[in-house]
């Protein structure tokens, strides 16, 4: 295969991957942020303490997270069809990608928000703030660096899942690597795909780390005993990936 043959394939695949990952990230953040906040707020000692709601939400999140992505994709076909009108193509892939990523991101949000000093919540309550004020003025802004890191992790994980979206004809880089690199022995094309993925993921990680760090630099904790906060984005561990994949 010559470069002129590969080039349109690759640019199409890149576009598809970014399209799928972009939209599903957007939905994951929009859905996972409130869900993660809910997990913290309804927990014991939380502002909206509600043991039943917390257990139910937590269980749903756990089940969704333990579902292998390829099964999720098949299981959700009916749902996907009602939303997008089809079960094939990149739009159709966004549905299971987003649904797989929402609970993933929600857990990361939960961890990030839990790290916010309870004293800050108390301070806002003592000023007469309600729960919504606490969320808006304290929990989200104070955990923003961690939330950005969590988003980075989610994007990277989504690029991984999107490779499987090829199985529903959604295209993307992973799809190219399997169909051409593996099934047609186009080793060059496969390595180029791998290289592109490596570069894209590095760039995303770099941008995410930079954003989180620059936010963190001006801040830091106000108390006298600074709690160490994990600055570097955690790569999803093997366990995380195997759960979803």
């Amino acid at each position: 295969m010559t470069w002129s043959e590969m080039q349109p394939l690759l640019s199409q695949a890149c576009g598809d991957t970014l399209y799928m990952v972009g939209w599903s990230t957007l939905i994951a953040v929009a859905g996972g942020l409130p869900l993660g906040l809910l997990l913290v707020l309804t927990d014991k000692g939380g502002l909206l303490q509600n043991v039943v709601a917390n257990k139910v939400t937590g269980q749903i999140v756990n089940i969704a997270r333990s579902m292998p992505f390829i099964i999720l994709m098949v299981a959700l076909m009916g749902f996907t069809r009602t939303i997008t009108g089809t079960t094939i193509g990149r739009e159709a892939a966004i549905v299971p990608l987003a649904i797989g990523a929402v609970p993933f991101f929600a857990r990361l949000v939960e961890t990030a928000v839990r790290e916010v000093d309870g004293g800050l919540v108390e301070a806002v309550q003592s000023m007469g703030g309600n729960t919504w004020t606490v969320v808006r003025k304290v929990l989200v802004p104070e955990s923003l660096p961690s939330l950005i890191s969590s988003t980075t992790t989610t994007v990277v994980a989504l690029i991984g899942y999107s490779a499987m979206a090829g199985t529903v004809g959604a295209g993307g880089l992973g799809d190219i690597a399997i169909r051409y690199g593996y099934q047609r022995f186009e080793t060059d094309l496969m390595w180029i795909t791998v290289a592109i993925l490596a570069v894209v993921i590095s760039l995303i990680q770099f941008a995410g780390d930079w954003a989180a760090r620059s936010l963190h630099r001006r801040g830091g904790r106000s108390g006298p005993a600074p709690k160490l906060r994990l600055l570097k984005t955690k790569e999803p561990t093997a366990a995380d990936v195997s759960k979803v994949a």
């Binding site: 000093d117 004293g119 301070a123 000023m127 007469g128 003025k137 802004p141 104070e142 106000s222 006298p224």
Partner: peptide, 18 residues
């Protein structure tokens, strides 16, 4: 509303770092 008319200072200051 009543709380907003009672000021409170804390041992660990509790200022928003952001």
């Amino acid at each position: 509303q009543a709380r907003s008319r009672i000021g409170m200072v804390f041992q660990h200051f509790n200022l928003l770092s952001s």
